[in-house]
Nucleic acid binder design. Structure first.
Lengths: 385, 385
DNA sequence: CCCATTAAACTCGTCCTCCGAGCATAACGG
DNA sequence: CCGTTATGCTCGGAGGACGAGTTTAATGGG
């Protein structure tokens, strides 16, 4: 086998990366972005066409000048299977190099037992493998829990024990990329959502507890083993209060349905999300007071994260959006009040996430595409053919 | 986000980067690390020699085989002036491409007034410019305060108002790179210190308050404007307590000399560092109890950061080292107790920083060298000659 | 309706880097 | 002293990117 020369496909890989970042981009736009001469652009696209990585279709003309072409993934090009596992359902989509979700599927769990769910996911992977063969280059899986080296460590909503997620791709030989759903929805926001273009972004999502991630140039800070972003377990709260995670005083305990129930002197709800929505609909003083306390804890915590990370923007998802909306002034006051003085003149905006239901799926796809459009992966794809 | 384009001098830049990471590295070792053929290594070193970026000296032979050469910065090569501004003194050193500190200087402030100190620093820069001419490619400045876009925003120890730091290089045309001292000492630890080789590292240093940084692959998470890493202003403390930074409940207020004084019911000390050292020398019960409280706050806070960032290693500097040493069991208990369960089997080690006094200077140099050894900078150096 | 204008694609010679194979060299050690 | 070993050196060749020159396909004013 001929050894692959260093960087041979670097520019080709860069072109593909552009395609994933801006679906529907034209060849001329790519050339401008990468500062390629038109000659180089001609050559690199021809090469990519030859190896079935992209096709070109005439672009609608925009004013004078010879019309350019729109770059599109090749119909025989590589694809990724993106999976999003949730508490009561799971979703899947096939993703080509432009990041568009094809053939999206939604399925309810019939059983929530880990082994049954795993089996269903494995079947989905096997079907994709059958359908796409060697075009299927990667499976990317979002899960609602702490992920570490493709193992699920803690999944409070699913109530599963530690679980090896690689069984999802077992027998297919397709590489797996598993990640936390909050982290991945953050990736989606940072790439094509409310935090698009931000150098540093903080993403937070409240469902049961709070999840999130720090994103630097669209790349999540995953930590040593992929378990980074557990902001819910920073001790922003009352240190006397134990958290199921094992620590004490976690922020988690101050900002979700369990906190509302505690403030309302009710037992811990079975479904904290539904419970929160219910409390948000109430208009009585006790409910409003409980919401105020939770929103205050949210605003202060976000301010602390802004102090620590100095992001361009903060994006929030899940229950954080209606919670803030229910007490906007309270939130603004807590957020401002928690900021260091010099941040106050132009505090980073706290924006609602734009990808809401698709976030984890799109983020999972984006991280997989990062790998597929790396130089070694492109070189390997060419060699494989 | 922006893909790295492989320019003409990419491999040459890679070689120089290797040199900054491992001073005294041999040509053969570089070739192995970068997977270059011996032919390419010969060519790239010859090219770098031609443009005065490095020289080679015979390496002491290590066993059989033709001896290789040690790569060294060229005597006419580019240099960086590294400056470390402290509360009562400032240091400087000239740094060549191997990161070694040449001509280190130590100076006490005669006056601590901002304008006087700035003038002295400017004079140092001008002298370096005179001595090194166009070889002086960058000035890298560490300051004990929050830095944002080369402006000093807050400097509690210096008691200075907001200050434009670019005046330090005014008139010389040399680019300035200013950064927080704690951040830069973290860079030094992550590159060549206690966190060397760590993918994700958290660095914390207590002097007056606590400073620190998150390092990913040796690169500090600087945030949108360079003010990232203000971990001291996360609300790990008592929310009723206002912080001079403008926020409330800051961790800062729980872990330094000011916290000790509060616990001991004494007025806020003028010099919290000296005060802390004094309390650490005391053996009475009240002092021990105060230290215990502070060390507990330190351990819990670090655990929270570990939960959030999942680092390979945590490095601590400044007063954090003697504080922990004064109550090791207390620290270990708080640290363990604050971790999420799955972190407890193999918690990241909390190691004392190894670069102590040189940290900021070495970190400042390292970040400047990152820029000098980038492909565009190498290409620019070649074009300039 | 034609043609100047415009923007982009295409062609091709050249430069540059890196590779690999073959050869040369400088150490060690029996 | 010579075989072994690791490395450096030389040179032909491959391939990507550039840039200058040319061609092409659109617009829009006269």
């Amino acid at each position: 086998m001929t050894p692959v020369r260093r960087g041979q496909w670097q520019t080709a890989a860069d072109v593909l990366t552009q395609l994933t970042r801006q679906p529907g981009i034209t060849r001329a736009a790519v050339a401008r972005a990468l500062r390629l001469s038109t000659g180089s652009a001609t050559e690199v696209t021809a090469r990519l066409r030859d190896v079935h990585l992209l096709t070109e279709v005439p672009a609608p003309s925009q004013g004078r000048g010879r019309p350019t072409t729109v770059l599109q993934p090749h119909p025989q090009g590589p694809v990724v299977l993106a999976l999003d596992l949730r508490q009561s359902s799971w979703r899947s989509a096939v993703v080509a190099l432009d990041g568009s979700l094809q053939d999206p599927q939604f399925n309810r769990h019939r059983s929530r037992r880990a082994q049954v769910v795993m089996k269903n996911l494995r079947r989905e992977v096997q079907q994709a493998k059958q359908r796409y063969g060697s075009r299927l280059q990667m499976v990317s899986l979002a899960v609602p829990g702490t992920v570490r080296d493709n193992h699920l460590m803690q999944a409070p909503t699913l109530e599963w024990a530690e679980l090896d997620l690689t069984q999802v791709t077992e027998g297919t030989g397709v590489p797996l990329l598993a990640g936390n759903d909050a982290t991945l929805s953050g990736v989606a926001e940072a790439r094509t959502g409310a935090a698009a273009g931000a150098g540093t972004a903080v993403h937070l999502i409240i469902e049961v507890g709070i999840g999130g991630t720090l994103l630097i140039d669209g790349v999540p800070a995953q930590g040593a083993s992929g378990a980074g972003g557990e902001y819910g377990h920073m001790p922003f709260g009352d240190r006397s209060r134990p958290c199921p995670c094992g620590a004490r005083g976690c922020w988690d305990l101050e900002i979700d349905g369990r906190a509302l129930a505690r403030h309302l002197k009710q037992p811990t709800p079975d479904d904290p999300v539904a419970y929160t929505e219910e409390v948000l609909r109430r208009t009585d003083r006790a409910a409003r007071a409980a919401v105020t306390r939770v929103v205050t804890a949210l605003g202060y915590g976000i301010a602390g994260l802004v102090n620590a990370h100095d992001p361009d923007v903060v994006t929030i998802g899940g229950l954080a959006i209606p919670l803030r909306a229910a007490a906007e002034d309270t939130f603004a006051e807590a957020y401002q009040g928690g900021l260091m003085t010099f941040h106050r003149t132009a505090p980073p905006p706290v924006l609602p996430a734009t990808h809401q239901p698709d976030g984890p799926l799109r983020g999972a796809a984006a991280l997989a595409l990062d790998q597929l459009t790396s130089e070694p992966a492109v070189a390997a794809w060419v060699a494989q053919r």
